[in-house]
């Protein structure tokens, strides 16, 4: 299941072998599909389901996400784990696109500049909206938005710019509205973007972490991870805590060779772990980085199948 865009993935060894099916066969092998909700075991273990499987009757339970009701039965509509909260049955998909929640930290890319708003690609089912009124503008936090600001929106964010923001609210159709009204948020530079499936990013106390190797990480909950050169806390706050030049600058700082290598190593570790479906946290990444340095393997070798497997095994082995 490892994927690196340049070559084809090997077949899933769990289901690699075709087996011959003769028709008609006995339809009685429909075992282990029905879920008994009185079962003690259900509460502890993770029950799986696939679309079209009956979960329970709709009289006793309410349907949640990932399910629908037909013929007085609650039926799963996605493949994943069945979750129950009191009388509410829902199915969480094993893999899906990012489902935003208010307060989530996301990394995104400007897709379009529209009147008074930017459209941001943040891995969701629609482009997110960043209103001109939800960004900090040069000149202070409480400054009014003038007509001249509307006319020079591209001086703040242009198409293709990367930014980190927080989900502020939702529109009626489910599109998310972002804001960057904090010094932590804003345009990104001095680094590299890695995209992983959003399920792999857990909610952490802080999604801004810095590794001791001189690399800052922003783990966006949408699966977009920004790996960049470490910026000292003292540098981050300029005059008045806000320096327009620095915040909306498009120019990278000087990045020395060691930092570039460290950034590349961290991104390759993230890719390797994501290919093995390993959840990413700062602790895991730090451990993996130490392993990679210890093994003294080349940065690009981390993408090799066997090195990646050894990396994952080393993480599992320690616990």
């Amino acid at each position: 299941m490892i994927t690196f865009a340049s070559f084809a993935a090997p077949p899933d060894d769990l289901y690699g072998h075709g087996h011959r099916v003769a028709h008609p066969i006995d339809p009685a092998d429909d075992r282990d599909m029905d879920i008994d909700f009185d079962d003690e075991e259900f509460v502890s273990g993770s029950k799986l389901t696939v679309p079209g499987e009956t979960l329970t009757s709709s009289h006793a339970f309410m349907r949640g996400h990932g399910t629908y009701v037909d013929n007085e039965q609650v039926i799963a509509s996605v493949a994943g784990t069945v979750e129950r909260v009191n009388k509410l049955i829902s199915v969480r998909a094993a893999r899906s696109r990012y489902n935003p929640e208010v307060g989530d930290l996301v990394v995104g890319r400007i897709a379009e500049v529209q009147p008074k708003r930017w459209k941001v690609d943040a891995g969701g089912r629609q482009d997110a909206v960043l209103m001109l009124s939800s960004v900090n503008l040069p000149g202070g936090v409480q400054r009014r938005k003038l007509e001249s600001d509307e006319l020079q929106m591209r001086t703040f964010f242009e198409e293709g710019d990367l930014l980190v923001a927080e989900v502020q609210a939702f529109f009626a159709d489910g599109a998310m509205s972002l804001h960057t009204r904090s010094l932590k948020y804003g345009k990104l530079r001095n680094g590299q973007l890695v995209i992983v499936p959003p399920a792999l990013i857990r909610r952490l106390k802080s999604h801004f972490t810095s590794l001791p190797c001189g690399v800052d990480l922003i783990l966006g909950l949408n699966g977009y991870i920004w790996v960049s050169k470490h910026v000292k806390d003292s540098d981050r706050e300029g005059e008045d805590g806000f320096d327009a030049e620095a915040v909306y600058s498009n120019r990278n700082d000087d990045i020395d060779c060691a930092t570039r290598t460290a950034i590349a190593r961290v991104t390759n570790i993230i890719r390797a772990l994501a290919a093995h479906w390993q959840p990413l946290t700062d602790a895991v990444l730090l451990e993996a980085y130490e392993w990679a340095v210890e093994q003294d393997c080349d940065v690009k070798d981390l993408l090799l199948d066997d090195v990646a497997a050894a990396l994952v095994a080393s993480l599992g082995g320690q616990h």
Binding site: D12, L14, L48, A79, G80, R95, W277
Partner: peptide
């Protein structure tokens, strides 16, 4: 099922270790 089980297991192993 096989695919879902594989993804869920990979996540589970790790969450326990965390």
């Amino acid at each position: 099922y096989a695919r879902t089980r594989r993804l869920v297991d990979a996540m589970d192993v790790d969450s326990k270790s965390i």
